[in-house]
Amino acid sequence: MRPFRLIGSFMRASFQEDAAYRTNFFISLFTSLLNLLTGVLGILVLFGQIDSVHGWTLASTLAVLGVYLVVSAVRGLFISPSFDSLSGMDGEIWSGAFDFTILRPVNAQFFASFRKWRLFALLDLVLGVGVLVAAVIQLGVVLSVWQVLFFLFMLVVGMSILYAILLIFAALIFWSPGVLFTWVFDGLFQMARYPANIYPGWLRMVLTWIVPVGVITTFPARALTDSITPVELVVSMLLAAALLVVASILFRVGLRKYASASS
């Protein structure tokens, strides 16, 4: 259980850093609420004009937003803070501080992925779960334990895909210090606020299988309404596994290329 103990101490250390800036808490709360408000109002305005788009109703679209908020919260909780400390001109790889990271007696990928936590993101998590609950109530379905488990499973598949993509971007830093890939991805990821099926055909395919941001949010939401086909289930699991393997290999190759920052 060593990894969990380590994660616990990473969380404690990050929390102590954050607790020094207490006003940031209120500002985070404020921006989280704004984010929630604009997301929900956007959907309400759309469905105030129309009952359904390509079979998506207010309730099921709200479920996608809920998943989007939850996934973004988990990303903001540790994935982004951890990877952000590597990238950029003041990041560890550019400055050479990464030396101290790889000297530690833990797996480098594990350490690079879990070491920084932004516990304020738990607020976003709570709000996201709130939207999900509201969506399920709106849907008017009674979920069985299996459905909830299946939903959580799809959520984990989606999160793994997101994690793998972000790890690939983090690994690319070994070749160039740019953070530009992540920004382009963030732009596309915003599209995952809405069900992939709401977009025109060609874009739906791109968002589902090429830049699979649709799988990350649309599939878990569809799990709630039992509309995932077995083929989609298998393909999305394979996609997650393949991306995780590729990302991990790329990170290792990049690690071997790392030659510190001495002149």
Binding site: L46, Q49, G187, Q190, I198, Y199, P200
Partner: peptide, 20 residues
């Protein structure tokens, strides 16, 4: 890239509304 980022939100609503 910044310009790309600013373009995306209106582009999303363009696609959503025109599909609707």
């Amino acid at each position: 890239i910044l310009a790309f980022g600013w373009m995306i939100p209106p582009l999303i609503y363009l696609l959503v509304w025109s599909t609707a």
